[in-house]
Structures are given as C-alpha cells and as structure tokens.
C-alpha cells in the first residue's frame, strides 16, 4: 500500500465514502435483479450509516473504525476482531455445510466457500512465513 493510499484509508472520509459506494453497488445489483425499490432502500441505509460514522467523531471506536483514530493498539484490535469474525464465519459455514449434506444435498455452495477459506488461509500462512 502506498503512503498516499494509506493516508486516504486513514482519513475520516474513507469509511463513509466506502459505505455510500457499497450502497451504489447494491442499488445497481438490485436494479439488475429487477428490484430497484429495494436497491434504493439499501442505498439510503448505507448513506445513513456513512453519515453516522462521519459525524460521530468523538468515540474512539468510531474514529478507529473510520481510520483517522487508528493507532497500533487499534490495529491490533482490528486484526483480532477480523480473526474472530473469520472464525465465526468458518464455523457457521461448516454447520451449514453439514446440515446441507444431512439433508441429502451436495453441500454447495458451502463446500466451495469452505474450500476458498481454507485455501486463502494456507496461502496467507505461506506468504506471511515467506515475508518473515
């Protein structure tokens, strides 16, 4: 990551703009799927979320999530929180996969998602080990 892009992701505008961009993508996807009304609701919800994050600057949690209040301690919390959410997601995928197999189905798409998560974990370990 370049210093310029790192400065942008650490500005207070990054997460609000990202939220609105995600809302725009949701609107486009919903429009393509024939539900433009639902897309507008998604966009409105993501815009409100972005505004709340932008304006609620006194909280350390909000500033850390937003990026402008992020220091080494928050970066460590962010990494641990990401690991926890990844673990929860993998456990949920395993449960859903087993339930699908028990119902006599193929287990898809959970088997693919589990394969992707396992493979990405292995690749990350190899790269991190290589980088020291």
């Amino acid at each position: 990551m370049t210093r310029h892009s790192q400065a942008f992701t650490r500005s207070k505008w990054f997460l609000p703009l990202f939220s609105v961009a995600m809302g725009g993508l949701l609107l486009a996807a919903s429009w393509l799927g024939g539900h433009p009304g639902a897309g507008l609701v998604f966009l409105a919800a993501m815009t409100v979320f972005g505004l709340v994050i932008l304006l609620a600057g006194r909280s350390e949690t909000v500033r850390g999530l937003r990026g402008d209040g992020r220091d080494e301690r928050f970066a460590q919390m962010d990494m641990r929180a990401t690991a926890v959410s990844g673990l929860v997601l993998i456990v949920a995928l395993i449960v859903a996969w087993l339930v699908e197999i028990a119902r006599g189905h193929s287990g898809n798409p959970y088997s693919w998602l589990l394969a992707i998560s396992g493979l990405s974990y292995l690749i990350a370990v190899v790269i991190l080990r290589w980088r020291g």
């Binding site: 850390g64 209040g69 220091d71 080494e72 301690r73 928050f74």
Partner: peptide
C-alpha cells in the same frame, strides 16, 4: 502519535 486510550491502557 497514538490515542489517549492507548496511553491509558
């Protein structure tokens, strides 16, 4: 260059 909460912690 860190937050006040980090110093407190």
């Amino acid at each position: 260059g860190v937050s006040r909460q980090t110093i407190n912690s």
